[in-house]
Amino acid sequence: MTAADDAHPEGPRSPEQRKREALERLAKDIDVWVATADAGGEPCLVPLSYFWDGESVWLATRDTNPTGRNLIATGRVRLCFGHTRDVVLIHGTAHMLTREELPAEVGDGFAAKEGWDPREDHASYVWFQITPEVLQAWGTVPEMTGRTLMRDGKWLNQDS
């Protein structure tokens, strides 16, 4: 048995199971890898804390760092949750909000989950609402087929 077999020993998961487990991961994980690029294509990859509200991923970062500048300039982002044998990958669009514009329930949820409230930190912190456009979930090679569970912001399997 290989490490790949250990990830999902029962074989490839159904799309319904992958969607359910992806949503569980979004609700429970602590951090996410955030990939952005500037206008010249220079990539930036950083781990950030996040909050999932059931529809959007919320990030807080300084508007002066590369990730914040890239999100403001392009609005494009990729988020990667999990580890290499159980990945949830989101391609999304970022919308910036100031702390004054942030819905209180989002800020409160983020602070409760993370134990840190960016609203009370340095004034350069801004918020980004990430709207998923594409969501993919896979574990190992047998799950590569059918890994796209959401396209154009719509779940492909609406029953699960």
Rank of each mutant, 00 (worst) to 15 (best):
T93F: 08
A94G: 04
I90R: 14
H91Y: 05
L97G: 03
V106T: 05
L89R: 11
L89H: 08
V106R: 05
G82M: 06
N65H: 14
E105L: 04
H91I: 00
E114D: 10
T93E: 12
T84K: 10
A60N: 12
T64D: 09
V106L: 00
I72D: 13
F81M: 01
F110L: 00
K113N: 08
T84D: 11
A94Y: 11
R99G: 13
E101T: 02
D86H: 14
A60H: 14
M96E: 13
R69V: 12
G75H: 09
L97F: 14
G82S: 09
L71H: 06
A94C: 01
D63M: 07
F81N: 03
V77Q: 08
D63H: 15
E101H: 07
T84N: 09
T84W: 14
F81P: 05
G75T: 03
L79T: 11
G107N: 10
F110C: 01
I90L: 09
D108W: 08
H83N: 06
A73W: 09
P103R: 09
H91R: 05
T98G: 13
K113T: 10
V77C: 04
G75P: 05
G107C: 05
E100V: 03
F110Q: 03
E101A: 05
R85C: 00
A94E: 02
D86P: 05
